[in-house]
């Protein structure tokens, strides 16, 4: 197969998988629309709809990543577009693993908008840089990147639980209880979920970071500093939580700040990596 044929085959694959991603985004949009409509009508009910919508969206995300993975011949995190989709997939995965376990069915209503925004941005922004040839695979690099992104998924869910905590806490403080109040989990349960998600995310991120030392090729210093910065940020939040230096409300707020910062740094890391890989 010459270069032109390979490029044409890849273009076709990229067209098909983008369609899968659009369908997946529509599933998340359905959950968002339903949540907004229910909130406006004052009849917020968690129900199964959000879980099913996120589940269906997850299936299409998986199909996209699988096709893209086969096309690029490695874990599909070769450009910023794929990184964002992999992150969205990790968020949906962790939601489906921990949502039912911690009886946080309502989390779907808060998770869907986040995934929807990430995927919509990825689809609209010109960040899907195509590689004409298959890139050489490095198992350590793939393990490092994918593990770090799954950890980001846990941090994203901690951020979602943080938003839920702050919504519930505000209603309790101001004595203004809305329909959603009766469906949100108790404060202590939400705080326990935040703590567990932070620990899971931190452990996975540490594993991902440690595996970076075995990649075998030098990393750009910006990338290393950004990655270490995220690690330090979450280490500080967990230290504050563990030694009771931070009140639960502050931990919840820091989860939101932390994830926003981490997402921005992720952009920086991936952008730097892309620059680094360019000839």
């Amino acid at each position: 197969m010459d270069l032109r044929e390979a490029r044409r085959a890849l273009q076709l694959i990229y067209l098909v998988d983008r369609h899968l991603l659009i369908v997946s985004t529509i599933c998340f949009l359905a959950a968002v629309v339903r949540t907004i409509a229910a909130l406006r009508a004052g009849v917020f009910r968690p129900g199964r709809f959000n879980f099913l919508a996120v589940g269906l969206g997850f299936i299409f995300q998986t199909a996209f990543l699988s096709i893209r993975g086969h096309a690029v011949g490695r874990c599909p995190i070769t450009n910023l577009f794929e990184v964002f989709i992999f992150l969205a997939w990790s968020i949906a995965l962790i939601y489906m693993l921990i949502g039912p376990a911690y009886r946080l069915s309502l989390m779907g209503a808060f998770t869907a908008p986040l995934v929807f925004l990430i995927q919509t941005f990825a689809l609209l922004a010109p960040i899907d840089v195509r590689h004409a040839v298959k890139l050489p695979a490095n198992p350590w690099l793939e393990f490092h990147a994918s593990m770090s992104l799954v950890a980001y998924g846990a941090f994203a869910l901690a951020c979602v639980a943080g938003v839920m905590y702050l919504v519930q806490e505000r209603q309790l403080k101001t004595h203004q209880l809305r329909s959603i109040f009766y469906h949100l989990p108790p404060l202590t349960n939400l705080f326990a979920a935040i703590t567990r998600l932070l620990w899971w995310g931190f452990a996975l991120y540490t594993l991902g970071l440690a595996s970076g030392f075995f990649i075998g090729e030098p990393l750009p210093w910006v990338q290393a500093v950004c990655a270490f910065g995220v690690w330090l940020l979450y280490a500080a939040i967990l230290q504050g939580r563990h030694f009771r230096q931070l009140a639960p409300r502050r931990v919840a707020a820091l989860c939101i700040v932390g994830f926003s910062a981490a997402l921005t740094l992720l952009w920086g890391i991936t952008f730097a990596a892309q620059m680094h890989s360019l000839p």
Partner: peptide, 8 residues
């Protein structure tokens, strides 16, 4: 009810 929403 409020106590349960705070403490579970």
């Amino acid at each position: 009810d409020l106590a349960e929403k705070i403490f579970g």
